[in-house]
């Protein structure tokens, strides 16, 4: 296999937040690459700054130091080019399902008529036609997160930033949504960075897993996951699955012991 092209490179990203007495160093020279059409999971002990990485990429937080290169060009952030999805579905309660999906398109200033057509098309692709005029309150957790996923995809972002998007859902719904996500990523050729607590999810979905250390976070290891299938259920039944799973667990376990 030829060496894959780098889409996004984070180089020496540092960030500390002011605290009561001393500043808390959160990211300590974080460096890793995201390839074109990559699926990278970021795992690490809780509170290690995984969400801060996303906030820096999305432009919500400025790094103290370090550079970001997008396809070789230095960029300040990928604001406006990422699809950020969080654990909370963050649907706007005063907007109907359709209007929620339209949110990003409106922000981008896309012609309302075309935006409407696109939104309806996506909703029907993801089996949500008939719910266009429902308010989020009336939907189940899984459906709400599906709407959030559509809202993210409909913008056609360069990179999807998924911050534990399924961790609030029950296992069945999660498997189902993982399946939908993988299908969508295939269909729309998306690059994905997934922050997760769930090693099982990281192994099943990713091509590569970046392991972060305890705070201040550095990249501890990057593992290639070579499973034949990345559909959530097939991947979990792959004979190599448990090998990866244990390697990554061990990787995190060592850190827990250190901290204790």
């Amino acid at each position: 296999m030829s060496s894959p092209k780098v889409q996004l490179r984070l180089n020496g990203i540092r960030k500390s937040f002011p605290g009561k007495e001393a500043a808390t160093q959160v990211l300590d020279g974080l460096t890793f690459d995201i390839h074109e059409r990559d699926f990278v999971s970021i795992i690490g002990p809780s509170g290690c700054g995984k969400t801060t990485v996303f906030n820096i990429i999305a432009g919500l937080v400025d790094p103290d130091d370090g550079v970001m290169l997008y396809r070789g060009q230095e960029v300040e952030s990928l604001r406006g080019r990422v699809g950020y999805m969080m654990q909370k579905d963050l649907l706007f309660p005063w907007r109907t399902v359709l209007d929620n999906v339209l949110l990003g398109l409106e922000t981008k200033g896309i012609d309302p008529k075309r935006a409407l057509d696109t939104a309806r098309e996506y909703l029907s692709t993801f089996g949500l036609s008939g719910f266009e005029n429902a308010y989020p309150k009336a939907l189940s957790g899984g459906m709400r997160q599906r709407v959030a996923l559509i809202r993210t995809l409909v913008l056609d972002p360069d990179i999807l930033l998924l911050d534990e998007p399924f961790s609030a859902l029950d296992y069945q719904t999660r498997l189902y949504l993982e399946g939908i996500l993988m299908e969508a990523v295939e269909t729309f050729h998306k690059t994905v960075i997934l922050v997760t607590h769930d090693i099982d999810e990281a192994v099943a979905l990713s091509k590569r897993v970046v392991v972060l250390s305890q705070r201040p976070a550095r990249v501890k290891a990057v593992h290639d996951i070579a499973l034949n299938e990345h559909s959530p259920i097939a991947a979990r039944s792959d004979p190599r699955f448990s090998g990866y799973f244990h390697t990554l667990c061990a990787e995190l376990d060592i850190q827990t012991r250190k901290s204790a």
Partner: peptide
């Protein structure tokens, strides 16, 4: 809700938006 604002901001929305 700060998260809703953050979400819109990450989409590139202006303060007026």
């Amino acid at each position: 809700d700060k998260d809703l604002q953050a979400l819109l901001f990450s989409m590139g929305a202006s303060k007026q938006h």
